[in-house]
Nucleic acid binder design. Structure first.
Lengths: 186, 186
DNA sequence: TCTGTTTGCCAACACCTGTTGGCATCCAGT
DNA sequence: ACTGGATGCCAACAGGTGTTGGCAAACAGA
């Protein structure tokens, strides 16, 4: 059994996870210290260790992410690229977990593996449903990942001015056709 | 005067820079330690400090990069996207400095600023020469950056299997039309 | 009310970090 | 041959890191 009845420390556990996500997202894996995370959660650093075992395991626990992709087969085929662009950008803005994964994934193998699995297991199957040849789905999903992650990198992490200052609509207008081509074009 | 006559320690200085680039590229900014860099260069850590002052200044000295873009006006306009894709991927493979900038840029502000200036000062002006309205050049250059950096991120850093295993030709075939559209299309 | 477990904090460990100062050694210019 | 600076290494500092063990208080079940 993994699910037990509620414990008295559940609030603390949740506070640690929240603080961890925030710190990992803002500072990356190595600069986010257990002491800082504990301070944010207003508890002692040793509690983090007791409840999560190690920094690495804490990250693994904090970095679960679901893209919540819609079912591509229910979408008008010619708008899929644009809708996908809009969905992903919105999803990105609403949850800092993806920031944490992006910032940490560059130097931490656990984070990189998590990132890979998100785009392989969540995006890949949806792409397979609509692309011309299902055998191409992994490559197409990879290309989509590259454009989406690249925009997030430039917009939120590196803060390239023209990309960072772009409105979300503008970004969607540019990315839409690109993703559409990666989905079903050649 | 910044250029003096050759010093006896020039070889050491160069060895430090080489080792620094390699470590920053492989490990990112915080995990690349001065001690490790010094060990690679087969000298004492204190020499790094004497010759470069601090870790931050060492990075700044090691992370100069020139994209060596061709003159876009000399290229056939309809092939510019593909040629640009090919050039950038080749440039990426031939110099680990860009890796260092990408890995470090995620957590280090100096590296991020350097990255911004590369794509603004080197790519921007070339884009301005060929895009329909020069006022759009920064945005177009930013979009190109996002796709190029995104591919590098997925291919070399996160190692998304389908992107990492793609041949360079295949990557160029996919990116070419995207960059072409970001350059001159709508 | 007694008892065992949970929750929390404190203090400390062992290690690693960037960084500094001192002391030999080598070399170039006279 | 002598001297002053350049080159290099060693040892150490001060501060920060993940992590651990012990002890007090709070709680839950009897």
């Amino acid at each position: 059994m993994t699910s037990n009845r509620p414990r008295r420390s559940d609030a603390t556990r949740a506070a640690i996870l929240d603080a961890a996500r925030e710190r990992f997202a803002a500072d990356g894996y190595e600069r986010a210290t257990i002491r800082a995370i504990a301070a944010d959660a207003a508890i002692d650093p040793s509690m983090v260790m007791r409840y999560y075992g190690s920094k690495e395991k804490l990250f693994a626990a904090a970095a679960h992410f679901d893209l919540r992709l819609p079912d591509f087969t229910q979408l008008p085929l010619e708008d899929t690229g644009t809708l996908l662009a809009r969905h992903v950008l919105a999803r990105w803005a609403g949850d800092e977990t993806l920031f944490a994964l992006l910032r940490a994934g560059v130097t931490n193998e656990t984070a990189a593996e998590r990132m890979r699995s998100i785009f392989a297991d969540q995006l890949g199957p949806q792409v397979a449903k609509v692309c011309p040849d299902p055998a191409e789905a992994p490559v197409r999903a990879g290309l989509i990942s590259s454009q989406v992650l690249g925009l997030a990198l430039c917009r939120f992490v590196l803060r390239l001015p023209p990309v960072a200052e772009m409105t979300e609509d503008e970004a969607v207008r540019w990315l839409g056709p690109t993703l559409q081509r990666y989905l079903v074009g050649y």
